[in-house]
Each structure stands twice: as C-alpha cells, then as structure tokens.
Design a protein around this nucleic acid. Structure first.
Lengths: 258, 258
DNA sequence: AAGTGGTCTAGACCACTTT
DNA sequence: AAGTGGTCTAGACCACTTC
C-alpha cells in the first residue's frame, strides 16, 4: 500500500481501554465514519454519487474490500444506495422508493395511494417542556409547530402535529409549506439541509377528542391510532417530534418483524 | 480448488432467462440455500452450533470468504447467531435476547417487565374461512385456537387469540400449555419443530367489546390496539395467525424505522 | 495451544451501465 | 471500451474463547 493509509488508519486507533471504549477499531469502521462525516458535511449531496470504491480505496490508502465493507454497512442503514454498474448514491427523500419508509399506513383493500396534504397551521412558539426535552432544547427555546391533515384516498385520515427546532428551521412558514408538494422530509432535506435518517415510534390507541373528531370527520371518542415519532439525523441528534392520529377504519399500520 | 465444488456450484446454475428468473445465482446464495435447508431439516437444532466456516468451505468446496458471506446473510435474518471465538449457532426462541423481538410492548415508564400468562381456552375446530385463507388451508380443515391473557406488571394488558394449523400442532392441548412457562414460540420450536422466523403485523385502533372489556378489566368502548400478526417459518409458509388486543394506557408498542 | 469468527489484502473475473 | 459495483479466491493475521 501507500503511505497515506496511516492518515486514516492511525487516527481513531488510539482509544485506551477505559470502560466501554473498544480498544481496537477496525479499519472499515474508521472508513465508514469518514464517509458518514462527508455525508453529514454535505460533501456529496442527496441524489449525487459518492466516489467509486476504487477511488475511495486509493484516497484512504486501504484496499477496495475494506471500503466495500464500509459502504455495505452504510447501504444497510439506508444512508446510501448502491446501483450496479452506475455507482453509489447518497440516499434522498425525493424518491418513490422512500415514501413508505416512514409513513407506514396502507389501505386495507388494495387501492390507489393518492395522498393529499392540507396545512392547518404553522407557527413559531416557545417549546413546551416535553417537546424541549425530546428535541434536546432548553425550555422556552423557539420551535416550529405544524399541524396538518393527510387525505388518503380522498378521506381525511391522519392528523399530524409536528415540532421542529426553530434554529435549524429558520424561515419555515405556512406559505413555504403550501408552495411545496411532496413529503415534508424532502422539503427538510432540500431547503434546510436536514436529512432524517432514523426514527423511533411509540404507538398507542386513544379516543378522539372534539377538535380531532371535527378535523377527521369522525365521532368524539372514536378509537384512533396515536403514533409518536422522534426522528434524527446523522449522529442521532433528534430534530423532529411528531404526533400523528390515524383513523384506522379503512387503513392499517403495517410492520415487518424479522 | 477441489472438484467437489461443482456439485454445489452447478446445481442451481441452470436457470433459464424466463421472466423474473435470474440467469446467474451467485455461489454464496447457493451455499446460503443449502444452509437454510439444513436448518429447516433440523440438521442442526436450535441452540446448537453449525459447522465452522473452514469446515463448511471444505465440505462445499468453496472458499471461506464465500461461506462467510452466506452466513453473514443468515445472521442478518436472525436465523443464526455468530459468537466470536466460539462458533455460529442456530437461533432459538429460548433466549432473553429474542423475547422482545415479537412482543413489542413496553411500559411507558421504566419498570420491571414481569410477564404472566393465563390460558383462557384451547380448542380444536374447523377453520373459519378467513383463518383458512391466511394459513393456506382448505376451508374446514382442523385448526387450534388458543385464547389467553398476558399480565404485564401485574395488570391484564393483552388478550391474544391464536390460530394454528391443526396438522402441524397435533397434540397441543390446554394441559400442555399450562405445563409450559415462557414464550409460546419456545414451545412451538421445542415440541413441534416449528420455528417462527418472520412475521408481518397489521395494526389498528379499535373499541373494546363487552367480552374483551371484562377480561382486561376496562370499560366497554375503550380504545385498544389491535395487532394482527401472521408468522411464518423457513420458506415463508404462514403457520400462525394471531390477533392481539393491547391495553395501551400504561404501555406502548415501539418500532424502529431505519 | 488450538480453534473459532473477524479483518485486511491483492488480484482476478463477472455483470451491468454508460459512452 | 471503459467504468462501476458484485463475486470469488487464497492467504495472512488478529481477537476472542476454550482446553
């Protein structure tokens, strides 16, 4: 090999044996970190190709197999998409493929998946304590709160309440939302440089209150699926809290266990 | 290499170019299939070690790297568990680790996870049409239906209705269930040679009916999470249909999106 | 010390896409 | 034809576990 290897290789190597800190970090993990940092820094934009495996191997002074293993893991985490013969591309929310990765609601009977969105409000306010805690903000810091209704197959089906850190989403207004069609995560990615990577959801069954019943056109007290989602970007920083109320009379939340 | 390679390699190679049928099947995929067949046939029992990578490479006449890639995928699908320095083991439902892979219900506030089970009934009957369809049986074929209540932290929280194909679960009785403590999937695996591998769930919010309300100690009409699960073994044959009703006042269903 | 999985390399060749 | 990801090999060495 080439001497430039030591630049990459020795860098993260010096971890000591303190509790929980691994003594040896495999080379491919170090390469993976470097690539993740590049993605986070926007060195390669969503939808664009990253350098080829051969090029990266040369650049970092490691073998192609090592780069390959690093990219394999990035692909498994959906940070990147491999396309044989073409290259490896930064994942993006502007794709049909990614649409149903986060909204896991399907019609009970096969049918079209027409999806309409109606913004009810979008305002900036001081973070309630619970939201501040979840988003890692100080109580009272600025947040954006969006409320909207999603229509599936012509029926109002989802009422979403979305909380975002105000600093990161400066300039997000109702007008800007209205001017955009498509998944919100696409907007966040393109306009605010914030790409949602991972999310955890907590799901409950709740009874509809009066305001919700009105918006979804259902009875007060009707059972609704409540989906609370915390989404995060690279390095697992939480940047969105979303509470969705789903009318599941004609749709269902689907999940694969494996 | 060794000539025995051709035995494994040429076997699945002859696929023609018909619609959707891949022309070339990589070697490691063929090895993976052979291993899966071995698992399915019970050549290595749950909890036991499969042969070492070197041994398998020798046996199939391929390189260790190829065997390794095959096993990597089996591990990713949770069919097998790798333990460095010890070997690769057939996954089993008799492990703390696997408990919460299928029952994804957690207490809202950190607390113990005591789990009690009470069988309400277990009877054999002719399959209702819907159940028959899901399990791939002819209408009227024998099925086993189990109903039970799960207590979480001392509170009745889950009402399960479980449907199994009668032929595969011959000899499953209420007494046998009562004599067993632990996850049902452990019993199915040990006593009936049926290991649940994958499952898909459809989740809705529903209102409690009178019978359910009685059993869970809640009000009629209270919102409940309805989780319908279809579980399958190797080769994706559906072998269980389960409808669970969860009281989510103090617990939630959790999910990771990545 | 011996055996297992885990990492890394260097190089060959294949399948696929674009030029 | 050239470039990309995908497969496969052979061999070295490392980390971890057991004997």
């Amino acid at each position: 090999m080439n001497d430039s290897r030591s630049q990459a290789a020795d860098e993260a190597q010096g971890d000591d044996g303190a509790a929980g800190i691994p003594r040896y970090v495999p080379l491919y993990v170090q390469i993976k970190r470097l690539l993740t940092q590049g993605l986070q820094a926007g060195e390669w934009k969503p939808g664009e190709a990253i350098p080829s495996e051969v090029e990266l191997a040369r650049r970092y002074g490691v073998s192609q197999g090592t780069v390959r293993k690093a990219i394999d893991e990035l692909a498994a985490e959906n940070l990147v998409v491999r396309r044989q013969g073409r290259g490896t591309f930064v994942a993006t929310h502007h794709e049909a493929r990614t649409q149903f990765r986060f909204l896991r609601l399907l019609p009970d009977d096969k049918g079209g998946e027409e999806l309409g969105s109606r913004i009810i409000e979008c305002r900036r306010l001081r973070a309630p304590v619970e939201v501040a805690r979840i988003l890692g903000l100080r109580a009272g810091e600025a947040v954006v709160c969006i409320r909207r209704v999603l229509d599936l197959q012509g029926q109002p089906t989802v009422l979403d309440e979305i909380w975002l850190p105000g600093a990161r989403f400066r300039g997000l207004t109702a007008e800007r939302l209205a001017a955009y069609s498509g998944p919100l995560y696409g907007l966040f990615e393109r306009e605010f440089g914030t790409r949602m990577i991972r999310a955890t959801e907590r799901i409950k069954a709740v009874a509809a209150d009066a305001a919700t019943a009105e918006l979804l056109g259902i009875d007060v007290g009707a059972p609704l699926l409540q989906v609370e989602r915390v989404s995060s970007t690279y390095d697992d920083v939480a940047v969105e809290f979303r509470r969705g109320l789903y009318d599941t009379r004609r749709h269902h939340y689907f999940n694969e266990l494996s």
